[in-house]
Amino acid sequence: MTDKIKFKCRNVRVQYGDLEALHGIDIDIADRGVTAFIGPSGCGKSTFLRAFNRMNETIGGAKFSGQILMDGEDIYDPSLDPVLLRARVGMVFQKPNPFPKSIYDNVAYGPRIHGLTETQAELDSLVEKSLRRAGLWEEVKDRLTEQGTDLSGGQQQRLVIARAIAISPEVILMDEPASALDPIATARLEALIEELKTRYCIIIVTHSMAQAARVSDKTAFFYEGDLIEYDDTEKIFTNPDNQRTQDYITGRTG
């Protein structure tokens, strides 16, 4: 984990109609490392995650205020194209969502629309590299023309990660990426996260406290739209400063 800051968030508020889901979040997210967002359902952690690639704009009635700087650049600048932002800030969802296309085309999709490669050979090598980084190459190299949707859940999730990696993002957002996976697939995914964090800034939302403890360097605990505590993961899980954090991670009613 480097000390370099990837995101600087100041007074981030998100409103759905009259309801304010986030009440002014200030946080700095480090580059090259894993930051976990934890907290009970409805605490705002997923809303906050979606603020990093402006996904909330796809939800009608969601209003953003405050500031998120990525490497010093305001990602809510009206002149910035959200589509290009999402190419730099990839996202992996709870349920794997491969396109109903071949494994190859799933990974090649992004590079094609963003025009990242010029020749077929270049595209082939990018697809292979992405699948390798996602830890899926060995399992699918002989069946690249098969449908992505025919893979197992864990493989689909890694395929989606390969798809995200293929367009060389700087950040990967993960919204409960392992909640639909069995323990073996979860372990593979966590091993992959461990490896990817040397290259990318990863932010993960998870309901599994054990998973947050295993994969993240920093942990942020959210409660009812506020950031309650943000610290090294080791500190959060051994000796948190805030009683609410302690109650949540030890499974107590507050």
């Binding site: 406290m209 054990a210 403890a213 899980f237 051994t238 948190p240 302690q246 991670i249 030890t250």
Partner: peptide, 8 residues
């Protein structure tokens, strides 16, 4: 029980 923090 996967105890953490003070429980642990």
């Amino acid at each position: 029980r996967n105890p953490v923090a003070q429980d642990l």
